[in-house]
Design a protein around this nucleic acid. Structure first.
Lengths: 164, 164
DNA sequence: TACTGATCATCAGCATACTTATCAATATCG
DNA sequence: CGATATTGATAAGTATGCTGATGATCAGTA
């Protein structure tokens, strides 16, 4: 265990480092300027119109304080609109713009290419297994991070959310 | 692929997020104040006395500009000494201090506990497989990141370094 | 209704990461 | 030897990610 390359934490950092670099490269080559974090947020906003920032953070496992800056940049790029809610004035509701939708549609091939590239050293079976193991480890460690994944907190309680 | 949870990039981010949180928690409970990045750098400096910063960066796959700040903090904590080389005055040679060695010895149990905790959802066999697959994917993608791993560049060329 | 606690968003501050640019020193080529 | 190229270190700027604190607001209760 004395070698750093035997430590899962170090491997996690390296893999993430490569994943981000691949994503940025593919996306830039496609003519877009969007980070992995911004992409995930934009996808979630499109799928959940009028979502508030705290719920969004839970959906994609971001820290609440990080989401502020991410949304700031999406708003600045004209991909998202942030407006106050009339029901609860603490809340900022998020909406994707037409330009945001267009960006998502155009960027999809590059994003999918990136996912393939970062696994290019593995066979299809190995890639599936890696993702299965990552999902399993993440599920077991979800509550250990400050920004755990939270199922959508709509009016009706989600059934597949682990008991808290 | 439309779901973010099917994307290896997102899983990589989540796993890394948990790994860092677990590391910091375990280390803090053991009474130490060291980040994963600082720990890896300190281990590498101990194993390579009088190493320069650029070589250190290659050994643990950090960006050259990132290493400056990391070493700054290690120096500030008294764990590392940075001194100019007499042979090449561009170079800052790094040495671990006695306090640095003592910290590494004391922190080891917490670090090992952290590595186990972040894999707690997996069986031993699954953990081994996950690490094997991560290593394989990382090896294939090494050159895709800005800060690829580089074998130690000592006077004699390293044999196990992939041809560039 | 006033109090209490919880929640949403944000800010300040610290620590990675990376891009680009710059400076200083060394190496190399002609 | 001198112009050029390369290299080590750092700075400036941007983007995550986290801790801790604050202000505004909401919900439930005494």
């Amino acid at each position: 265990m004395s070698d750093i390359n035997d430590m899962p934490g170090h491997l996690a950092r390296r893999f993430q480092q490569i994943a981000v670099a691949v994503f940025l490269t593919e996306v830039e080559e496609a003519g877009y300027d969007l980070t992995p974090v911004q992409y995930a947020a934009l996808v979630a906003i499109r799928a959940n119109p009028a979502i508030d920032q705290a719920t969004l953070a839970g959906l994609i496992a971001y820290d609440r304080t990080t989401i502020t800056g991410v949304v700031d940049r999406l708003v600045q790029k004209g991909l998202v609109i942030r407006q106050s809610s009339s029901h609860d004035r603490r809340v900022r509701q998020l909406q994707i713009t037409d330009e945001g939708k267009q960006t998502l549609r155009g960027i999809t091939p590059a994003v999918e290419a990136a996912q393939r590239t970062m696994l290019r050293g593995l066979t299809a079976k190995e890639a599936d297994e890696l993702m299965r193991l990552l999902r399993k480890a993440i599920a077991a460690g979800n509550e250990l991070s400050r920004a755990p994944l939270r199922g959508a907190a709509t009016s009706e309680p989600s059934a597949d959310r682990p008991a808290k």
